[in-house]
Structures are given as structure tokens and as C-alpha cells.
Amino acid sequence: MSIVLLVIAKLIQLYIWLIIANALMSWFPGAGQSSLGRWISKVVDPYLNVFSFIKPIGGVDFSPVVAVLALEAAQLGIQRIFIFLGLV
């Protein structure tokens, strides 16, 4: 596997974990107000705002799920491009 593809894949996976952490922080009172919580929100919220058109269903916000699925699709697409170009 190309080193560039590996770095891209790892960065996407890291970002997915940050999205998951951001979603889990909403379950714990005060977690979002910690310095780590504020940093994660600052990093993740601009991307999650792209999916703000998805309305909560029954009080559950599914925009992080759609955001993660979009990142997974992008990662798969990048891998396919690398394979198509013969860079892997």
C-alpha cells in the first residue's frame, strides 16, 4: 500500500474517532465544556455542520452517523482511485 494512501486512511480513521468521541460527549454532562471537549468540538463541528440538514428523529441526531458514512465512502473512493491509477 502506498504511504500516501496509508496516511490518508489513518487520518480519516482518526477523524472518524473524533466524531464518535464528540457524539459520546453529548451523553455526559460537562464533557463538552472540558478543554479536550472544546478542542474536539472545534475540530469536528465544521464538518458536522455540513450535515445539519438532517433533522433529529425522536430526539436522536443521526448527522454524526451520516458524516461517518460519508468519510468511509470517501476513503473507499480514494482507495479505488489509487488502485485505478496503479499507485498501489
Rank of each mutant, 00 (worst) to 15 (best):
V65E: 07
A73K: 09
V60S: 07
A70P: 07
A70Q: 02
N49R: 15
V66M: 10
K55H: 06
D45E: 14
I54T: 05
N49M: 08
V68P: 01
L69W: 09
V43C: 15
I54R: 15
L48P: 01
A74H: 09
L69P: 09
N49E: 12
P64L: 00
S63G: 08
L48Q: 01
I81G: 06
L69C: 10
N49D: 01
P64C: 02
D45I: 01
I78V: 10
S52G: 04
V43R: 14
I78E: 14
L71F: 07
I78L: 06
V50K: 08
A70G: 00
S52I: 12
G58S: 09
S63F: 08
F51C: 01
E72F: 04
Q79D: 07
P64F: 02
V65L: 10
F82V: 02
E72N: 11
I57M: 11
G59T: 14
E72R: 08
P46R: 09
V60H: 14
R80V: 04
S52D: 13
L76G: 13
A70F: 15
R80E: 11
R80Y: 11
D61I: 07
L76W: 14
F53L: 07
G59Y: 12
V60T: 06
Y47T: 03
I78M: 04
V50C: 04
K55E: 12
V43P: 02
I57Y: 13
P56C: 12
F51W: 03
K55T: 09
V43G: 03
A67T: 05
F62T: 04
